[in-house]
Amino acid sequence: MDGVIGFFEQLGPNLQILGERMPLIVEGIWVTAQATALGGLLALAISIVFGVAQVAKYSVVRIIARIFVEFFRGTSLVVQLFWLAFVLPQLPYPFGWQLAPLAIGVLALGLNYGAYGAEVVRGSIGSVPKGQYEAISALSLSPVRGMFRIIIPQAWALMIPSLSNLWIQLLKGSAIVSTVLLYDLYFRIEQVRDQTGTWFAFLFALLAYYLIAWVIVILMNALEVRAKHKIGRGPALSKSWGTLFRSPGSVITEGSLFRAPISGGGKA
């Protein structure tokens, strides 16, 4: 019942099995969505805090932020996941926490991709033209006010494409969480596989992940249009619905190529 031919021969019965198993699969999709959304939020918070800290006035703050970022970027996601799941419970009091699988997944995804995101935030703040900083002092705005009213709105518009790519990376990375007993979409599909055959189950899984990724793309495209409009660099969202469906691959343009290594199209 396997192989490409089997895929088409068995399509009808397989769809029926899929229908019967749908409640479990939906549960898996829900877990993946939770891990992706919560992990993404944690990652965003970490990116902003540690991104801004890396350009802070005090070198102590900068150095601590730098160490944090390098540490979580340098040790692989899977290692962090396993460390939280297997090592943390074995540590002595006051540690020795046995976290819930979802908490492990969210923490590992958030810390790892947050560290990458911090680089994106740092790079974007650095890419805001120097004249804008000069304008802050010319208008005698306080540095904090200038940061929040002038620099960050512009940096935000710059960083969204890279953050969007990172969030998709996080979604894709979340497929590993079943190794620490979090029953996500991939885990549920693996359960269905015995009945439907490999091709059907995995093509369905890939398609499901692909569609979730597109939800992220559309959401982030909307955010980008809005951010650009707010700093006067593009049409309002209501006038540019078409741009929502722009593929994330098309964000690396000539101008951002040299920034891309820092933001790395999202990675490294």
């Binding site: 894709k172 590993i176 995995f202 890939l206 992940y209 692909y210 593929s247 691959g249």
Partner: peptide, 19 residues
């Protein structure tokens, strides 16, 4: 290319290995 880029490596690994 876009499909491969936007789907998880983990799922692709297991799929390819099984097939």
């Amino acid at each position: 290319v876009e499909f491969i880029r936007m789907t998880p490596l983990v799922v692709q690994l297991v799929f390819a290995n099984l097939v």
